[in-house]
């Protein structure tokens, strides 16, 4: 089975020389259809960088980033933007909905930007809202919704148009524990239905919804689901930074 997302030896360095910060140092992993992978790590471990690179929002310094077989690195900017609209769905901690648009308009927007006719895009958006259980709130504005409802809209926007890669960056960060769990159930259900998901979180309870957990430290994968050998901790002070 081919991977929906594959990262091969990805490096990302900010700045140069003395001041260079190595956000990612040779990260490789793959996410297949039907799979949810959690990426865990402390602040500054590189997990958010990893997600922006997987989503084509940032470019690696070296390495390959393949989404459904095409390497995002070698695509033109326009092609990359098209991949973001058609293949990749993003869910952020802060929801990032457009306040002047209703729920259904927010969800339809990426489809309309992709050239889908407005009526079709609306119909698809309503179907996506139905899937996340809030089609009755389709005509509400984000400010008139609770945090949990807004995040459901954001998930609908991430999956509309049958996108197969869902990237979620601390999607439950702003929600209470039970509402957060509802959101994870939705992401999980979407993956069970065939999508590939990457969930960045620092909360183990949320990572536990994933099939695999990737532990990241200082831009390096130190462990996957507790099996691989570990960098020695006391041996390696700040030398690597």
């Amino acid at each position: 089975m081919s991977a929906v997302l594959r990262l091969v030896d990805v490096h990302r360095t900010h700045g140069e020389g003395e001041a260079a910060v190595h956000a990612l140092r040779g990260v490789s992993f793959a996410v297949h259809s039907g799979e949810l992978v959690a990426v865990m790590g402390p602040s500054g471990s590189g997990k958010s960088t990893l997600l922006t690179i997987a989503g084509g929002l940032d470019q690696p310094t070296s390495g390959r980033v393949e989404v459904e077989g095409s390497d995002l690195v070698t695509l033109s900017q326009a092609q990359r933007a098209r991949m973001r609209r058609t293949s990749i769905g993003y869910v952020f901690q802060g929801f990032n909905l457009i306040p002047a648009l209703t729920a259904v308009e927010n969800v339809a927007l990426p489809r309309e930007l992709d050239g889908v006719r407005s009526r079709t895009a609306r119909a698809e958006a309503r179907a996506a809202l139905e899937e996340v259980g809030i089609v009755d709130l389709a005509d509400r504005f984000p400010d008139d919704m609770s945090g949990g409802q807004q995040q459901r809209v954001a998930i609908a926007r991430a999956v509309v148009g049958e996108r197969r890669l869902i990237l979620a960056d601390e999607p439950t960060g702003a929600l209470d524990s039970e509402t957060g769990e509802e959101i994870l159930r939705l992401i999980r259900a979407r993956c069970d239905a065939g999508a590939a998901g990457v969930l960045v979180t620092h909360e183990a309870r949320h990572a536990a919804w994933a099939d695999r957990v990737v532990f990241l430290r200082d831009g390096v994968v130190i462990d996957e689901s507790g099996s691989a050998p570990v960098d020695r901790l006391l041996d390696e002070p700040a030398a690597s930074r």
Binding site: A204, R205, A208, D223, S225, G226, V230, R232, L233, L234
Partner: peptide, 20 residues
């Protein structure tokens, strides 16, 4: 090697958490 002790335990606890 404390680092290994911690990571092995974390892996095991994570597996338990996934089971729950």
């Amino acid at each position: 090697d404390v680092g290994t002790v911690i990571q092995q335990q974390r892996g095991a606890s994570m597996t338990a958490l996934q089971d729950y």
